[in-house]
Amino acid sequence: MTTLACIIRPSTPPSRIVPLARAVESAGIKEIWLWEDCFQTGGISAASAILSATDHVRVGIGVMPTPLRNVALTAMEVATVEGMFPGRLVPGIGHGVQSWMAQVGAKAASPLTLMREYSTALRALLAGERVTTSGRYVSLDDVALDWPPAQPVPVPVAATGPKSLRLAGEIGDGVVLEGSVGLAGLPAVLERVAEGRAAAGHDAAAPFPVIQNVSAATGPDAATRLRAELTAWGMDVAGDDGLGSYALWGDAQALADGVLRYGKAGASTVALQPTEDEPDMERFIEVVGAAQELLASA
C-alpha cells in the first residue's frame, strides 16, 4: 500500500510546527516530511520537536543538504534522534541548491563525488563502524559513534538528473523525488534508479522506498493557487491536464485517487505539499487525513 504523507514546509514559522504536527497525527496520517531550504527551519531540530510532541507519526527529512554539515555531525544528530525515538526518523540527504551552497561557501565542484563519499561514510558510522577515510570531500580519522543506532537507519538520497538518479539507486536506501518529476515522468526516473541498483548488484526485488513529493491543494481556489506556484517554478501547467501532471487538488476522494495513481506508477510514499500561500493548513491536514481514511478502506 502506498503511504500518504503530509509535508510541513520549511517556510512554516517555528511556532507553528508542533501544533501542525499534532494535527497531522490526530488526522491519522502516518508520516510527516520536512526539508531544508536556506535559510529557513532546520530539519533535525524540527524533526526532533515533532517526534517529542507526537506518539506514532514518522518524520522524514527530504532532504538535508550534504555540503552544509560535516558527515560526523550528521551521524551524531541522526543517531541521537534515533536513540530517543527508535524507528521514527527517516534522514534523507541531497546535494542542496547549488546557489545557496555557494552563498554559504560550501558549494562542491563535484556534487556526485561528495554524495558518494558522504553517503558511504554516514551509513558506515550509523552502522556502528569505526571509519577512516580520506576522500576529495570527506575525511575521517578513526571516527566512531559512542551511541550508534541499535537498528539500521535508512538513508534515502534525493536525485533529479540521470547521473544522480543512478547514484541514488546505487548508494541510497531509497530515493526522494521532487515535484518536477510528475506522474508521467515517474516511470522513466525509476528506470534510471533501477540502473544504479543493478550496477551495484542490489536485489531488484528488495524493497526500495520511492518518496515522491506532489503539490496539492483543497478549496475553491485550489487549482488557481497551484497553477500560480508551479508556473513560478517554471513548470508547464497549462490547462487541467497540464496541472494534473504535477499536482493534486480537490476533495479527499480526489486526493486519494491521485495518490493511487502515483502508487501504481511506482511511488511507495506520496508526500502532499501544500502551496506556499495555503490559507488554512488545519483544513488542508483534515482533508489529507480524510484521504488517508479512504485509502485505508480501499
Rank of each mutant, 00 (worst) to 15 (best):
T74M: 07
G174K: 06
A223G: 06
N213T: 15
G94D: 02
W147P: 01
G96N: 03
D142I: 02
A21L: 04
V214P: 01
S11T: 15
A205W: 10
G219W: 03
V210Q: 06
A222M: 01
D241C: 12
P152D: 07
A291C: 03
R22Y: 06
A79M: 02
T66W: 05
M64T: 11
A296K: 14
D257V: 12
G266Q: 11
P220W: 08
A256R: 03
P220C: 03
M115Y: 05
V138E: 00
V259G: 08
A200N: 06
L122G: 04
G289F: 05
L145A: 03
E77T: 02
V237E: 12
Y118P: 00
A127V: 10
R136W: 08
A109T: 15
H202C: 07
M115K: 02
R136G: 04
A205R: 14
H56M: 09
F284A: 10
V270A: 11
G42F: 10
G234V: 14
I61G: 00
L243W: 01
P274Y: 12
L114V: 01
V288M: 05
V237W: 13
A238P: 12
P187E: 03
L294N: 02
S45V: 15
A5M: 13
L126K: 11
D221F: 02
G42R: 14
I29G: 02
A121W: 00
A106K: 15
A232W: 09
E36L: 04
E36F: 01
A194D: 13
K163M: 10
V63E: 00
T54K: 10
A198G: 13
V259N: 10
G239C: 15
A256K: 03
P19I: 10
V193L: 13
A238H: 15
P279Q: 09
E170K: 09
A223S: 12
T3A: 12
S26T: 13
A127W: 06
G258N: 10
A252K: 04
G263P: 08
A184P: 08
T218G: 04
Y137D: 00
I171W: 02
T12N: 07
E293P: 03
D236S: 15
S215H: 14
S11V: 15
P162L: 05
A121S: 13
A256N: 06
A75C: 06
A158V: 09
P10L: 11
L112N: 04
A168M: 04
D236E: 15
T160P: 00
A184E: 13
W249I: 09
L122S: 06
S48I: 03
P13Q: 07
